[in-house]
Amino acid sequence: MQVKDRVWVVTGAGSGMGRELVLALLERGARVAAVDRAPAARAETTSFAGAPGERLSCHVVDITDAAAVAALPDEVVAAHGAVDGLINNAGIIQPFVPVTELTDDDIRRVLDVNLMGTLAMCRAFLPVLLERPEAHLANVASMGGFFPFPGQTVYGASKAAVKLLTEGLYAELLDTDVRVTVIFPGAVDTEITANSGVQVREGTPEEKAKAERMMTSAPDAARIMIDGIERNRLHVHVGRDAQLMSLLIKVAPRPAIRLVKKLMERQMGSPAAEEGVSPAGR
Rank of each mutant, 00 (worst) to 15 (best):
L86C: 09
H80A: 03
F96Y: 12
A70D: 08
E75F: 07
G53H: 00
A66D: 14
V77W: 08
Q94H: 12
A71N: 08
L56F: 03
G50L: 00
P95D: 09
Q94M: 10
V76W: 06
A70M: 10
P52F: 01
V69D: 02
I92P: 06
A70G: 10
T64S: 06
I87N: 01
F96M: 09
A78Y: 12
A68L: 02
L86A: 15
H59L: 10
C58H: 03
I63H: 02
I87K: 01
R55I: 00
V97Q: 14
Q94C: 14
V61N: 00
I92A: 13
A51Q: 07
L72W: 02
H80C: 02
G50Q: 00
I92M: 14
G53Q: 01
H59E: 09
V77I: 14
P95Y: 12
D84R: 04
L56H: 03
L86V: 10
L56V: 03
P95H: 10
D84Q: 05
N88E: 01
A70K: 12
A70H: 12
G81M: 06
P73E: 11
G81C: 05
I93C: 10
A70L: 07
V76I: 10
A71L: 11
L56I: 04
P95W: 10
E75Y: 05
A90S: 11
V77H: 11
L56C: 05
I63V: 09
D84I: 04
G81P: 04
L56S: 01
G85H: 05
I63F: 01
L56Y: 00
A78L: 13
N88Q: 02
P73I: 08
A78N: 12
D74E: 12
V77Q: 15
A90G: 10
A70R: 11
